[in-house]
Design a protein around this nucleic acid. Structure first.
Lengths: 252, 252
DNA sequence: AGAAGTCATGAGGAATTTATGAAGACGGCC
DNA sequence: GGCCGTCTTCATAAATTCCTCATGACTTCT
């Protein structure tokens, strides 16, 4: 709600009056508003600066709003772009939306609605896939971030802070290779990006605690020369005994 | 454009007429449309099934549209939800958007606009964070850069870092001949521009891993005296057995 | 047909990475 | 101070990746 101080809005319209009409209330709410009067200028700004959302007038001299939209979209696939226009024609709306606009606001617009739409677009683009505290589970490993609890087959597992951090990060990125650098940066801080040895030691401990056979991990896998990866799914639903399973996996 | 076959839309409205008015054109376009007449039903469906977008009427008996919106949003933080309503009141719009709606469509609405907004919402939710992370697929070879995973006919293939780098570069330039020099520079660095032998060895390994018949590659082709090229498309749609295909090709 | 160049193949070993185990450093707590 | 669990450090073993090189097949040109 209140943390809109750092949200950067790019206003693109050739009419200074309209830019001002938006800029003032936005700034009053704590947004940072930057103005551009032409499409080319907007493109340049987006290339060199960083914004959270763009308000783009359709009707402009030079390269029009539609052209600008297309090029912006190519530049920044997920940047929210709201089109602004006097025309309320279905054809335009459909075209803009198909070209990648996130929303379409017709002038004369209500400032409040406009701001609500800006907020919605920004919130949407920043919403993580899962919420912070949402439990994550893979196979019989489960992590409850809200309570900082890790369970293996229903049984709580005691993890030290670092172990927990590592596991959490890996499980939040389950299925994808996580670079040594990313893990180290996330858990220890950037200045430790190189200390791969730390990771090895902790991964070892983690495997001891969560793997049935630490030498043939099924969850906490290593991607040689890249980093570690938490399994996306565990292929076999073996009930109790896993000793055989480990061997069966080995290509050797 | 055409791959809307697998997009699942949930239509929530207490009036059957409206549901039908949307369902028919959506189905004609290849969307899968599922109906719900009440908020509770919608919540249950979202919990148990999987949808790409929800169209939600505000005015409904039982728990109203707004309530449903809030609960849906709690359930699925990133599921696109488009509100549908007869009222065109600023207050409602602002409230819905603040409660997490993705868009707001006023009845009577144009079907075309409505569909454009649905498409926009779905596209948005599926756009990868960075365009470099966008998946690439040719034939039954697929590469998911975000996860650093390569799949052949749906099965994950284990690639070493260099193998992966080479394949990624080639697939990003699928259809184009890639010079030895470019590949070597990109994977090993400029100082290795001449080491064509490295490439040969690795291409061999790659072919072993991704080609059905490594001696007669269909994907990773060689452009004599130039370099390698990843096929743009694979000509024949093979069913299951590929052995025959390989032989049939042989001029020998 | 022969020569020259290019590409494919295969396997062995060097080099780099990762796993493992254990000992020492550190910090909080009784 | 002594105890405890956690974090660092380091040496060694194991595993994997990468590189080298020799040989043979294929194509093109003379």
């Amino acid at each position: 709600m209140s943390e809109e101080k750092n949200i950067r809005v790019l206003l693109v319209d050739d009419e200074p009056a309209i830019r001002r009409a938006l800029k003032t209330p936005l700034q009053e709410l704590g947004f940072q508003a930057v103005e551009a009067s032409r499409g080319e200028e907007a493109l340049h700004l987006v290339r060199t600066d960083s914004f959270d959302v763009v308000l783009l007038d359709i009707n402009m001299p030079g390269i029009g709003g539609m052209q600008t939209l297309v090029r912006l979209r190519a530049l920044a696939p997920r940047l929210p772009i709201l089109m602004l226009t006097v025309r309320d024609e279905e054809h335009d709306k459909v075209e803009a939306l198909e070209k990648g606009a996130d929303d379409y606001i017709t002038k004369p617009f209500s400032i409040r609605e406009c701001i609500a739409r800006i907020r919605a677009a920004v919130r949407r683009s920043k919403t993580p896939e899962r919420s912070e505290d949402a439990p994550i589970a893979v196979g019989d490993i489960e992590i409850l971030p809200a309570r900082r609890i890790v369970k293996k087959a229903g049984e709580a597992v005691r993890l030290t802070p670092k172990e927990y951090e590592i596991l959490l990060y890996l499980m939040r990125n389950a299925g994808r290779a996580v670079t040594y650098g990313k893990l180290l940066t996330s858990v220890w801080g950037v200045e430790y990006r190189q200390e791969v040895d730390y990771l090895r030691t902790f991964v070892r401990q983690l495997r001891k605690k969560i793997e049935k056979d630490p030498s043939h991990p099924r969850y906490l896998l290593t991607d040689p020369c890249v980093g570690y990866r938490f399994a996306e799914e565990v292929a076999f639903a073996r009930g109790t005994n896993g000793a055989a399973a480990g061997d069966a996996w080995l290509p050797t």
